[in-house]
């Protein structure tokens, strides 16, 4: 690994051992390459189980090569090399695993276009080189829509772009406010469904212009309209 790889006075016996370790490592690596290959080609198991198995074989082969090819742990001062390797493996697990989990979770909750809209709005950069990005410039008026006894008041809200709209739920049940028609849900400014628990309220920023219908997904007769103009 370290000093031994260049300087130490290797005896022939030592060299023989090193040679042996390369041969063993090579054979084991071959085996651990062919088994998963065979398993995939013949679909011995399927789905997640197969994926987990081949990943397991990859990890084992990595360990084999680290031990037999890189000879980690055999040098005179291997401690920090091992520490760094372990540290890096953990970091890689965090980076790859974290990304996969987080991105999966985000996509489960929101589509990519909707996320992009929220993202741009959250950056607060409303134009670049004169092209509008869709984000709001500053904050303006607040409008309120109260839902009580299944009725929306006011039924119609007229707002300017970048105003905010607050849904207030004064009923007993949870309201799931969706946009568009009941059969054909749409989204507004990155929001697909806004859940307002009883007695609570939620605020959205009206960053997109146009006329929009909204309704309670569970009681679609509870509905209203808002328009956003520039």
């Amino acid at each position: 690994m370290s000093r031994s790889s260049v300087h130490s006075p290797h005896g022939p016996e030592n060299e023989h051992k090193t040679m042996q370790s390369y041969v063993v490592g090579f054979i084991l690596s071959l085996i651990f390459t062919f088994i998963p290959y065979y398993m995939v080609v013949n679909e011995v198991v399927s789905g997640t189980a197969l994926l987990a198995t081949i990943l397991g074989f990859a990890v084992v082969q990595m360990i084999i090569q680290v031990v037999f090819f890189l000879h980690l742990g055999r040098g005179p001062k291997p401690f920090y090399n091992i520490v760094f390797l372990v540290f890096t493996v953990v970091a890689i697990l965090v980076v790859v695993g974290g990304s996969v989990v987080i991105m999966h979770n985000l996509h489960y909750n929101k589509t990519i276009p909707d996320q992009t809209k929220s993202l741009i709005n959250d950056e607060g950069i409303y134009q670049i080189e004169g092209t509008l990005t869709g984000a709001c410039r500053g904050q303006h008026d607040n409008h309120q829509v109260t839902i009580k006894d299944g009725k929306v008041s006011p039924l119609y809200t007229a707002a300017k772009q970048c105003d905010t709209l607050t849904f207030i739920n004064e009923d007993d049940g949870t309201r799931k406010i969706s946009f568009g028609q009941h059969e054909n849900h749409g989204s507004y400014a990155g929001n697909t469904e806004i859940e307002v628990k009883k007695g609570r309220n939620k605020t959205i920023t009206l960053s997109e212009t146009g006329a929009y219908q909204f309704h309670d997904h569970l009681h679609h007769e509870t509905a209203g309209v808002f328009t956003v103009t520039k």
Binding site: A91, V94, V95, G98, V101, I102, N105, L106, Y108, N109, K110, D114, Q115, S118, L119, D122
Partner: peptide
């Protein structure tokens, strides 16, 4: 340090658990 980065995008649609 490498286990907090999501707090920069809490509002982007991650679920309550995450």
């Amino acid at each position: 340090a490498l286990s907090v980065w999501l707090h920069h995008f809490f509002t982007m649609g991650a679920s309550a658990n995450v």
